[in-house]
């Protein structure tokens, strides 16, 4: 589903590469934690998958597409097959919960009758039934992140990318979000999650890819956050 072959990325302003000869293969339906300290290259890794950046070396394949050969106007189609969740939720403050999720479908031209059918479904799935008319600032952090997950998943993407999705949440809320991501993973969606959260990685016991200074220093199935085990 995702394959990076000897991928390097050096930003123009920096001497040290953000990613240095990274080779990773992620199968369909996998749940992968991307760990490593700040500046280790996790965010660059995720940005490459979305073709927000192009690698300076190597090849990136996502959902069967060679991103280097993907023409500019096909990038939106790529991004429709990938859902994204971020640490800062990125909700639109002047839209309701329903409208925030519906926005993701409206802007890719989905018809209204389909929107009014699938948005309540996905809100039920993430546990926000009955809150569709709330504004984001009336919700707790965990609930806001659920809205973001609903928006990322409403178009049923093949891949869900989560960049520190629990970073702004308190421990009890984190567990709820992780359960939600786990449930989405069980529907067959590939999940790639960058995180600093050792407790979560340790409790989930899923594949762990650790980056350090832009290199893959560990790739372990059923791994933990720290070294060893």
């Amino acid at each position: 589903m995702i394959r990076l072959e000897h991928v390097s990325k050096t930003y123009p302003a920096s001497a040290r590469p953000a990613l240095d000869d990274v080779t990773v293969d992620i199968e369909k339906g996998e749940f992968v934690f991307l760990v490593g300290s700040s500046g280790s290259g996790k965010s660059t890794f995720l940005r490459l998958l979305l073709k927000e950046e192009d690698p300076t070396g190597g090849r990136v394949h996502v959902a069967g597409k060679d991103l280097a050969r993907l023409s500019h106007w096909k990038v939106p189609a790529l991004r429709r097959s990938i859902g994204c969740v971020f640490q800062d939720f990125r909700l639109l403050p002047n839209k309701t919960v329903f409208q925030n999720v519906a926005f993701a479908l409206e802007v890719i031209g989905k018809p209204q009758h389909q929107i009014s059918k699938v948005v309540p479904e996905v809100l039920d799935l993430v546990g926000l039934e009955g809150k569709s008319k709330r504004m984001p600032d009336e919700l707790s952090g965990g609930e806001q992140q659920r809205v973001a997950v609903a928006r990322a998943f409403v178009n049923r993407p093949m891949i869900l990318i989560a960049d520190e999705p629990t970073g702004n949440l308190d421990p009890s809320t984190r567990v709820g979000i992780m359960k939600l991501l786990d449930r989405i993973n069980r529907t067959g969606t590939t999940v790639v999650m960058a995180t600093h959260d050792a407790a979560i990685v340790d409790s989930m016991r899923r594949r762990v890819v650790e980056l350090s200074m832009g290199k893959v220093v560990r790739d372990q199935s059923r791994g933990v956050y720290g070294h060893g085990a």
Binding site: W73, P76, C84, R90, I108, G109, R151
Partner: peptide, 17 residues
């Protein structure tokens, strides 16, 4: 930019944005 950023992420076409 907040709206257009989200539009890009969810795969809205250039035309739509």
């Amino acid at each position: 930019r907040r709206e257009t950023g989200i539009m890009r992420l969810v795969g809205a076409s250039n035309l739509y944005i």
